[in-house]
Amino acid sequence: MTYFLSGGAKNGKSTLAQNLAVSLAQGGKHYYIATMIPVDDEDRERIRRHVADREGLGFETIECGRHILSCLETADPDGTFLLDSVTALLMNELFPAEKNYEMDIQAAARCVGELTAFVRTVRNAVIVSDYLYSDAIRYDKSTEVYRRCLADIDRALAGVCDTVVEVSAGQVILHKGEL
């Protein structure tokens, strides 16, 4: 089963995603795909909090900030994968640090292809994204490109995943499939 979760920040997406992944795994292999590539202490602190949250849940952590299919070189596709989040993954792909954060415009199409292939390959996946499309700010060009690319990925994932859920204040709004 494959699940796509989105919604506003701090609404309980990660908690729901963790619970879903653990219950899908039924005691079998479950992987946490860590997408954030830390650049400063703030990032490291956030990662530390997330690691503490997952303690005792039995996740095996895979560091994978880019090229999501590369996870499958070592992980068992018959397992359960929690990817949190698409937002961070796209950031790494679209604005690569080693290229001085210059926009790689091919990144979105590549992410769509790799993520949809990933969802079709693995037994169970829970994928988390962020809903950042409903404010009244006229953003600068690169932010607009980022939002559009993320939405393209979200829509593709919502298309291929069995279940699509929007999380609001810890509650779920079911848009497709069942929980």
Binding site: G8, Y133, S134, D135, A136, I137, R138
Partner: peptide, 22 residues
């Protein structure tokens, strides 16, 4: 129509009025 209603109140008065009027 785009939903533009969920962000922080915009600093810019035109954008603020845009959000309200929409």
């Amino acid at each position: 129509c785009q939903d533009i209603f969920c962000g922080v109140v915009p600093m810019d008065p035109d954008q603020r009025e845009w959000r309200q009027a929409t």
